[in-house]
Computed example of a mutant assay.
Amino acid sequence: MRKLLLVLLLLKSGIISADDCKKISKEDIYNYADIIFLGHVFEVGDSTYRINVMEWYKGKFLEDTLTGMITQRVMTPKTGSIWLIFGKTQPGDKFLADVCSGSKSLSSPHGTHDITFPEVPPPDVFKNPSQLFLAKQIVLDKALNEFYFDVASLRARKAQQVNESIKEKYSHLEKKYSQLSDDLNFLKWAVIVLIIVTVTSTVVRLIKK
C-alpha cells in the first residue's frame, strides 16, 4: 500500500503533474510508445538499469538486453522484477519509461492509465488494519488482472500483425504466380505461332521449287 500511495503522491506532487499523467486510452499508450516489451530487470544502478527482453510486442532493438534510464520521473525498478515496458527510445541505445508511460511491474502492477488505477482510500480505512489489508488485496487483484489482460492483448495484437504480414506476403506471391502463369501462357502461344509460321514458310518454299 505504501508503494501505491507513493505513486499517488508523485502524481499529485510537483514532480509529476496531473496534466502530465492525464488519462489516455490503451490505444494511445500503444501508439505513443516506440517499443513495448515484457522484461526481467537484472541490474539497477544510479542512473540506469539493465533489463532482459522476454517478449517483444512493438518495435525492436538489435539486442535483447536493454538499458533503461532512471530519472525523477521514473519509478526505479527492483532487481529481479518483471516489467511491462512502454518505452521511448533515447540516444545511445537506451530507452525511457516514465511514470506516465503506462509501464508497470508484476510486483506493483498499477499503471497510471489503468482502468483499475485506485483512488486514495477514505481516512477511516487506515485506522482499521483488517480493512486496509482487504482494500490492498482487492486493489492488487484488480491490478494483476489488468496486467495479465494487457499482456494477453499485446500478444494477440502481435499475432494478428504477424498473420496479416503472412497474408500480405502470400497475396504478393499469388500475384507473382499469376503474372508468371500469364507470361508462360504468352510464351507458349508465341512458340506455337513461331512454329506455325516456320512450317508455313517452309511449305511455301517447297511448293515454289
Rank of each mutant, 00 (worst) to 15 (best):
S105I: 10
V120T: 07
I138A: 09
L140E: 12
I51Y: 07
F126Y: 15
D46W: 08
L134S: 14
G92P: 01
L84I: 09
F149Y: 09
V99R: 02
K94L: 05
K94A: 03
G59C: 06
P123D: 08
T89Q: 14
D124S: 14
A152R: 13
Q72K: 13
H113A: 06
D98T: 01
T79Q: 15
F95P: 00
F149N: 09
T79G: 11
T48Q: 07
S103K: 02
F147E: 08
Q137M: 12
R157K: 12
L132P: 09
A135M: 13
K104G: 00
L62H: 09
G68E: 04
E55M: 05
W83C: 03
T76R: 15
T112C: 10
I82Q: 13
L96M: 04
L66T: 06
S108F: 08
G92W: 02
K142N: 14
F147C: 05
S108D: 10
D141M: 14
A97H: 07
D124H: 15
L154R: 05
R50E: 05
T65V: 08
E146N: 10
K158E: 13
M75I: 15
P91N: 04
E55H: 12
P77F: 02
R73Y: 13
L84W: 04
I82K: 09
F117L: 03
S103M: 06
V74Q: 08
F147K: 00
M75F: 08
R73F: 09
P91G: 05
Q72N: 14
V151I: 14
L106M: 15
D46R: 13
P77C: 07
S105Q: 06
V120N: 03
V44M: 06
G80Q: 09
I70C: 06
G111S: 12
S101M: 05
T89K: 07
Y49F: 14
K78I: 01
T89A: 11
N128G: 08
P123C: 11
P123Q: 09
D64V: 05
W83H: 07
K78H: 13
T48P: 00
G92A: 03
V125R: 12
V44A: 12
T116W: 03
M69A: 12
G102L: 01
V53E: 07
A143L: 11
W56H: 04
Q90M: 15
P77H: 09
P121E: 11
H110I: 04
I85N: 01
V139G: 01
F147N: 02
S107C: 08
A143P: 03
T65W: 03
F126N: 07
V44I: 11
